[in-house]
């Protein structure tokens, strides 16, 4: 069975928000209609977005990590948001595991959003239906698009390629390999939701310099006669023995 998902590599995400606005742009212009904004030019502008990039600080100065953390619907394998929906508007597709909302069925009761621990569903305040990341279901199967572009808008936009996309049930897929080889993990595993989206942790590359690497025969100072040598007057064996 297929389970499509995003794998987000926190090791390279620079928090640029490209995935945020490219998602907004694609989805606002897409077949399912706009994502509304309120008070766009006034105090406290607000709007419906499917994807947000948040920033956390880990540790205290000077050992601080600045972690940028993009988050959209995780397309849980056990999505708590689905069974609670009274209308069936929220559903998980059998064929590819994408969790979707049927805007034509949704009554806007918000119950599914209560049932999602991750805070990724947003009610469109003007269309009054629940919305969330669709995994760009209207792109990934669109045969009119060239093969390369049958990917989510945010994935194509991401300048650092921090967003990998594919089938996490296929052990040979790029995403499965990335999860396997880079200790990919899920968010809030404690609730048994089994998010399909995974995150790859920060990794740290260090260079170790061994002391002897600073002492080399070809030290250029030698050529200029400047490699320090002990002064001739310093004590040596010649001062104490004569064989």
């Amino acid at each position: 069975m297929t389970q499509l998902a995003l794998v987000i590599d926190l090791n390279v995400c620079v928090g640029c928000h490209a995935c945020v606005t490219s998602c907004k742009e694609w989805n606002t212009s897409g077949a399912a209609g706009y994502l509304s904004d309120d008070r766009p030019y006034d105090a406290d502008p607000t709007g419906c977005f499917f994807n947000r990039v948040q920033t956390f600080e880990v540790g205290a100065f000077p050992d601080t990590q600045t972690v940028h953390f993009p988050k959209s619907c995780l397309h849980c394998e056990e999505p708590p948001c689905v069974p609670v929906c009274p209308t069936g508007a929220s559903y998980k597709r059998a064929e590819d595991g994408i969790v979707l909302v049927d805007y034509d069925k949704c009554i806007g009761c918000k119950y599914c959003s209560w049932a999602c621990p991750y805070g990724v569903r947003e009610l469109d305040e003007h269309q009054k239906v629940m919305k969330k990341c669709t995994l760009c279901v209207d792109r990934i199967y669109d045969e009119k698009l060239p093969e390369r572009e049958r990917k989510p808008a945010c994935v194509l936009a991401c300048p650092t390629n921090a967003r990998l996309y594919g089938d996490i049930h296929d052990p040979d897929s790029q995403v499965s390999q990335a999860i396997r080889e880079n200790a990919g993990y899920q968010l809030m595993p404690e609730w048994g939701t089994h998010p399909a989206n995974h995150y790859l942790p920060r990794r740290k590359t260090v260079i170790r310099i061994h002391a002897d690497e600073l002492q080399r025969a070809d030290n250029p100072l030698k050529i200029d006669g400047k490699l320090p040598k002990p002064a001739l007057k310093e004590p040596s064996l010649d001062d104490v023995t004569s064989w």
Binding site: A18, V20, L156, A157, P159
Partner: peptide, 18 residues
């Protein structure tokens, strides 16, 4: 969206561009 055939950004785009 980003133009995949462009040498500079090779198809990606940023938050502003989008």
């Amino acid at each position: 969206d980003g133009n995949p055939d462009h040498p500079l950004n090779k198809g990606v785009i940023c938050a502003k561009g989008s």
